[in-house]
């Protein structure tokens, strides 16, 4: 029997009840969210459950929504059940002043660098991560560049001497 989105939804609701919310299916991929304290419980359940078997972490990243007060940062997990070939997207939201989320490295070794990258660009503090330090940016950087408050340089600026680079 092949696993369907409805079945996944049903199983997750049976287990966690009201705590998992915001079910939707944008472009066919089941998406839902849970409180950030629950992320490991949900991931563990999705991993261990005999029927669900979401044992492959495809991707992990964050999104910054500056306008949503109290839930500015979303950590997004893309999980894949390779046996039934079903993909789901699972999100936890956190406020930006205390961006603490439990690490998934205990479950997925591959989450190590993905979480470091997410920390590097969004400042999500993965609690329990074995080596949470910057990975792509320089270590001395003191801000998190992919947050929306850091705009790219204005292309029309004229105060900069750019003669050497053909823009002068």
């Amino acid at each position: 029997m092949s696993l369907t989105n409805d079945r996944v939804k049903q199983r997750v609701i049976e287990k966690f009840g009201e705590q998992v919310t915001a079910f939707s299916e944008p472009y066919g991929m089941l998406t839902f969210e849970a409180p950030k304290e629950m992320n490991l419980k949900v991931l563990n359940f999705l991993y261990d459950d005999e029927e669900l078997k979401f044992r492959f972490l495809t991707d992990l990243q964050a999104v910054h929504y500056p306008d949503e007060k109290g839930r500015e940062l979303a950590v997004v997990y893309h999980l894949h059940n390779l046996v039934d070939n079903v993909r789901i997207r699972f999100k936890v939201f956190t406020d930006i002043s205390t961006p603490d989320v439990y690490t998934a490295t205990g479950l997925f070794s591959g989450a190590n660098w993905m979480e470091r990258e997410t920390y590097d660009f969004f400042g999500v503090n993965f609690v329990g991560h074995p080596n949470l330090k910057r990975i792509l940016n320089v270590d001395e950087m003191d801000y998190f560049p992919l947050r929306k408050e850091y705009p790219l340089e204005d292309q029309t600026r004229i105060d900069k001497d750019d003669e050497m680079f053909g823009r002068g």
Binding site: P26, Y27, M29, T31, T58, D59, Q61, V63, V76, H78, R87, R89
Partner: peptide, 20 residues
Amino acid sequence: VGEVYSCVEGANGEVGFYLI
């Protein structure tokens, strides 16, 4: 408006694009 995850089999593995 929407969010899409789409992937292709790159030469190195799954090249995915998560677009919001």
